[in-house]
Design a protein around this nucleic acid. Structure first.
Lengths: 146, 146
DNA sequence: CAAATTAGTCAGAGTCTCTGACTTGAGTCA
DNA sequence: TGACTCAAGTCAGAGACTCTGACTAATTTG
C-alpha cells in the first residue's frame, strides 16, 4: 500500500507529530519553562486531574516504572509535580500536577490550538475533522492502554 | 479544539505511530534481525537508493551529524550499510544500504502492509484513504525536509 | 495466616543525543 | 593563483533516557 502510494504511513504519522512537539517545546522554552525535557513532558502529560500512580504512568507511556520514577524524580525536584500518599494503598503514591505545571500546560494548550488552527487552514475544516476522527478510531486498535 | 473533542492531536498521531513501529520491530527481531536498534532503523530508513551523505541523513532525521555518524558506525559494523567514496566530492562519503538491509526491508515492508490492512479493515477503505491523504497534505507544512 | 501479587526503589549498564573543537576538501573572488 | 569562507565529517566529552535484575514493603487471595 505505502509502496504505490507515497510515503510509509509510519513516517506520515511521525512527521506532524514531531513538528507539533517541536512547536510546543519551543513555545514553552520561550515562556520560561526551559527546565524540563521532552521525556519528562511525555510523562507529565499523562498525569490525571486527581493524580496518577507511577505504575500507571509507566504503563501509559510504555516505559518501565524505573524510567518513570527517574523522570518523576526530576519533575519533583524542579517543582512540576508532587507525590502525595495514596489514601487507598499505603504502598502507592499519587503523582500530582503542581501549579507550575498547570501554568505551563496553559501555554502548551494555546500553542497546540494555534498549530491545529494552521493545520485546519491547510486541510480545510472537513478534512481536519475526518483526520481526527480516523485517528481516534485507530486508537481503538493501537492504544495498548485505552 | 483538542479540549472539547477528545485527545490531544499529538498523542493521537503518536499512538498509531508507536504501535506500527513496535509491530515492525517485533517482526524483524523474530525474523532474526535483532542486532539493530530503533534509532539505527530510523536513520537507515532514510538512505536513498543510490546512497546518501551523512549530513543529509542527519538533516532528514533531525539529528546532529555526530549522532548520525555514531549510528552509521554501528550499522556498518553489523553489516547493514557500507560507506563508499562520493565521486563528486572527496570530503564526502555515501552511506549505502547493504544486501542484509534490503532483506530486512522486505520483512519490514510486509509487516507494514499487514498492519495497514488491519487499519483499513477497522476504518474502512474510504476513511483510510482520506487519512493518508490528509497526512500527506500535512507533510507539506510540517516536514522541514520535504 | 501463608503465598502470590503489586507498588515502588536501588544499582548498574547500555544507548542516544548533544555541544564544542578540529581536519580536510570545495567554492569564491580579487 | 592565493586567501578566505563554507561544507563534510570526525574526535572528545558530557548529559539524558532507558533497560534488566534484585530488592522491600504493602495488599490480595485461597
Amino acid at each position: 500500500m505505502a509502496a504505490e502510494n507515497g510515503l510509509n504511513t509510519g513516517l506520515l504519522l511521525f512527521i506532524p507529530y514531531r513538528a507539533l512537539e517541536d512547536r510546543v517545546f519551543a513555545a514553552l522554552a520561550e515562556a520560561g519553562y526551559d527546565d524540563f525535557t521532552p521525556a519528562q513532558a511525555r510523562v507529565m502529560q499523562r498525569i490525571g486531574p486527581h493524580g496518577t500512580r507511577l505504575t500507571d504512568l509507566a504503563a501509559q507511556a510504555q516505559i518501565t516504572k524505573q524510567t518513570a520514577g527517574f523522570l518523576v524524580d526530576q519533575l519533583e525536584k524542579t517543582g512540576y509535580v508532587r507525590r502525595l500518599p495514596d489514601p487507598t494503598d499505603k504502598r502507592a503514591r499519587l503523582v500530582c500536577v503542581a501549579e507550575k505545571a498547570w501554568a505551563a500546560k496553559r501555554v502548551a494548550d494555546a500553542v497546540v490550538a494555534e498549530v491545529e488552527q494552521e493545520w485546519q487552514s491547510h486541510l480545510g475544516a472537513r478534512r481536519m475533522k475526518h483526520l481526527r476522527e480516523a485517528l481516534t478510531m485507530l486508537r481503538e486498535i493501537t492504544d495498548p492502554w485505552a
